[in-house]
Design a protein around this nucleic acid. Sequence first.
DNA 1: GATGAATGAGCGTTCATTCAT
DNA 2: CATGAATGAACGCTCATTCAT
Lengths: 194, 194, 194, 194
Amino acid sequence: MKKGEKREDIMLAAMELIAERGFHGSPMSEIAERAGVATGTIYHYFENRDVLINELHLSLEEKIQEMLREGCSEEQPIRERFLFLVGAVVRYFVANPLHYRYMEQYFNSPYGVSRRRDKILGEADSGDVVSKILSEGVKQGIMKNLPEGVLFALTFGPLLVLMRDHVFGFETLDEKMISRIVESCWDAVRSRYV
Amino acid sequence: MKKGEKREDIMLAAMELIAERGFHGSPMSEIAERAGVATGTIYHYFENRDVLINELHLSLEEKIQEMLREGCSEEQPIRERFLFLVGAVVRYFVANPLHYRYMEQYFNSPYGVSRRRDKILGEADSGDVVSKILSEGVKQGIMKNLPEGVLFALTFGPLLVLMRDHVFGFETLDEKMISRIVESCWDAVRSRYV
Amino acid sequence: MKKGEKREDIMLAAMELIAERGFHGSPMSEIAERAGVATGTIYHYFENRDVLINELHLSLEEKIQEMLREGCSEEQPIRERFLFLVGAVVRYFVANPLHYRYMEQYFNSPYGVSRRRDKILGEADSGDVVSKILSEGVKQGIMKNLPEGVLFALTFGPLLVLMRDHVFGFETLDEKMISRIVESCWDAVRSRYV
Amino acid sequence: MKKGEKREDIMLAAMELIAERGFHGSPMSEIAERAGVATGTIYHYFENRDVLINELHLSLEEKIQEMLREGCSEEQPIRERFLFLVGAVVRYFVANPLHYRYMEQYFNSPYGVSRRRDKILGEADSGDVVSKILSEGVKQGIMKNLPEGVLFALTFGPLLVLMRDHVFGFETLDEKMISRIVESCWDAVRSRYV
DNA sequence: GATGAATGAGCGTTCATTCAT
DNA sequence: CATGAATGAACGCTCATTCAT
């Protein structure tokens, strides 16, 4: 077994379990079992439960940010970038429903709340592609002059709900539907008379 | 003490505690203490923890529905009804942050997921004012021709995110801001060329 | 079973176990088992392990102090009181070897150290019969003019060692021997030329 | 690195750690870390934890005995030898508080108890300078005719207590105080009418 | 009905020891 | 020889639930 592979196994096991059953339903003992290691082994790789969960979250966040940065040309007009970006997020989670489930659990927990506070109160995360588009859109007068947090909510709020419905099989998100939804989000943030 | 008053005390205590500290931080013993009853007493009124939590949710949901039904004249045009309704929901939660916190905890837990499944898969809840407006809006061609679940997400998704930011003090929702947000939600669901 | 009896059972079980095997060899689970209760039950009576151990110590200390106060007439001369007192302590522990073992474990542990600091740095414990005799002995010039801590060590230091030997069967402390030892302690603290 | 140097490193690390934090606060992993070796390496030099601890104790004891033997002329009268010896022990521990702390931890643990039993029940340790003085003192009628264990307790019991107070900063042992204490110990063991 | 003492499975975490490299 | 990743039993503690009073 390659080096570092066990660490990955543990993170994967934790992610799956938490996505499926939530934090409360994912004791260290089961994470270990699913990862195929002894309980104590987890503590070689992660100082404690909280650290494991936060690292897991960071790694997922980084993966998504990277995906978004890659496909996002800064030369296109705001609208096209917005549509691409939001669509990409939806498609990512549709393709990786476990990631979505995990993120949802994370943000709705003490972990996520403090993480969120860090982000909002701290300096703007310069690597955050979404922030960039929103602030630029406002500056150019293409988007409504609302606080970034509000624009963010108008953009991703619907997706959170729909993604959840999709993951649980209540709603089917095919390509066509995704396009229409993304367009609707655009309608919510764009300036009305431009 | 009137009959049923103890039952109310328990539900109130549970709601406050769960809103403040989440499910994990709200053991039965503390719920009992805050309600001023013995632990065992809870089990006279509620078969077990899950039942208590679900009943609590139902009662809250009913209260909100009632509030919406009351203020909602069916004679006004769709747009005005939509704006009123969505605004009412926001104002309700801004005025009752504990209810919001509770709802959020609830939906992000095994409880909420199964509840949601019940609702969507089961027969349409005829008392649901929101559903009515959405379906009527589509029928009249004033709203986009999207599945009700999608329209629901476009309407309430942003609110969920903003409410949370508001509750945690990241965003301030004053009257003016609420109006602009509600208008933006309307932009998301309304037909584009009408 | 009478009320409060379980609390006693737990304290007795803890005392015996700790005396026999030390703190490290006395997990809560075994204390519970020996007391004939479930593990969790201990936590109804004692907030946690530390509290149990400290309460146990306090109760033992109180018992000893009481015994000493009872038999100690303040009208006798210092020397007679000293001989009585020190003898009483020895006889108490010879009769209750478990108490001795417990005390020894206690004082040689983080618990005991902080307790000791409390006592020494805090105001003099007015109920402490030993302190009273020592300070009075110095004032009357009957004892050496040494700090109370030193006199205390000269008095009880030998007893600690001997008690341990006795408890482990290395030395036999019969009445005659006890008398001679107590006299020797008196020789250590008394003024030489009085 | 010289042969056997690693062994020394491990023993030194163990001694310091145990003196500072007790047995309980000194896991093998930390001993290894402080010694600059891998955990497993300890097990090349010591069969297991108990063996390490006992060897450590033996080596310390030997060091002290040696120190005492060196400075102790057998030609001086008993009293002078006694004063020198006991003073030397106190000064040694005042100068090496870590050794004292270690010894204290050791004797107050299952390790110490069995070691003590070995010593007392086994053949007399002919190299023990203290024993020699005590038995000679009794033979010459200069000391009280008490069992050696009792004389030992009268001599070293107070020191144990005072040393502890000193180490924790409750009592200050300067030269003058040491002399007076040693004299007092002598008072305890010497024949009264000689 | 109402109580709260009692239960015990389950949790996160530690650490002496082993063993493949 | 030396390493340190891996083990898993054991720990202190929590809490949903039961039941004698």
